[in-house]
């Protein structure tokens, strides 16, 4: 009982969680670019979720009599080589991209955080073995490793997500381990350990909250790279399989029609990738500034003046 109270006391200097969140958000929105990124992302997520309702056509709705038509009132982004509506396919493509991004980064977030925590907190041999394993994974070029994994597992949406998740795991493991190493030696952690707090309690109450900031920033940046990687894999024909629309796959199809002037087939999926990745990066940058105590005080002081 007394043990518990001591720990609470030691944590007391920290602000209440709710207030911290509000502050972070207002700091984030103070950055206009990041705010724009958040808005665009929200729109993307919304349209991906509502693609069934919003899209004027089904993504497999082919009609050879209307193939390769330029943008018009009926087909805002034109039609592709099978007469399918490019606008609808870009919308459904958003669903694929965001899903792959979320699940893949989810996988690497959980795995990487776990490995990083164990590695950083335990230290010693555990640390050496785990981190060298991560180094091996990390030494492969990201896309190459993803290709290898997909090639072994056979190409599909699920395997693409697994491959990207595995490839991004070392990044999270490193970020988390680095933070854990510094937090582990902080006075308040040592104090609670000396008071007999269990490892689990120390990790969940003290270490995790203090490594959250870099992990959150890394998550939003990794989302961008995961979506890019998925587009690359699909473009190479080993990611998402047709007729399911993915932006990379649409670019692959469009490639044969660049020379003949069907620009809409490549421009719109390309723009979609660009906008998504750019806004994720903006949000990531904004989050990094907002979560960094030094930067935060600068932002706040700027907000005051």
């Amino acid at each position: 009982m007394s043990e518990h109270d001591d720990a609470e006391q030691l944590q007391a200097p920290d602000e209440p969680a709710e207030a911290r969140w509000k502050e972070t958000l207002s700091a984030l929105f103070a950055n206009r670019l990041a705010a724009a990124g958040v808005v665009v992302l929200a729109l993307l997520i919304l349209s991906a979720l509502l693609a069934d309702v919003v899209a004027p056509y089904a993504f497999t709705d082919d009609d050879l009599t209307r193939r390769l038509e330029p943008p018009s009132a009926a087909h805002w982004f034109g039609t592709d080589e099978l007469g399918r509506d490019v606008f609808s396919r870009v919308l459904f493509g958003a669903r694929v991209s965001l899903q792959v991004g979320a699940v893949a980064v989810g996988i690497s977030l959980v795995l990487g955080t776990l490995i990083g925590l164990i590695s950083g907190y335990r230290g010693g041999w555990t640390d050496i073995v785990l981190m060298r394993a991560m180094d091996v994974l990390f030494s492969f070029p990201v896309v190459l490793l993803a290709i290898a994994i997909v090639a072994v597992l056979s190409p599909s949406l699920t395997n693409t997500m697994i491959a990207i998740g595995v490839v991004f795991t070392p990044i999270f493991a490193r970020v988390v381990r680095g933070s854990v190493l510094s937090v582990r030696e902080e006075v308040f952690v040592r104090a609670s350990r000396s008071l007999g707090a269990s490892d689990w309690r120390i990790i969940s109450r003290h270490v995790l909250p203090n490594v959250a900031a870099p992990v959150i920033v890394q998550t939003s940046l990794s989302l961008a790279f995961a979506i890019l990687t998925e587009a690359a894999l699909s473009y190479l024909g080993i990611g998402v399989q047709p007729p399911r629309p993915a932006w990379g796959l649409m670019l692959l199809d469009a490639q044969g029609f660049i020379a003949t002037g069907e620009w809409w087939m490549s421009i719109f999926p390309g723009l979609a990738i660009f906008i998504t990745v750019a806004s994720l990066n903006l949000v990531g940058d904004g989050l990094r500034d907002a979560l960094d105590p030094k930067q935060r005080s600068i932002i706040q002081s700027r907000g005051v003046t």
Binding site: T60, D62, L82, S154, P155, Q241
Partner: peptide
């Protein structure tokens, strides 16, 4: 394959395309 998938879809056959 994509045209085949859509045509067979009309008679209730689902096609998983594997590249």
């Amino acid at each position: 394959a994509q045209v085949i998938a859509s045509q067979l879809g009309e008679v209730g056959i689902e096609v998983d395309i594997r590249i």
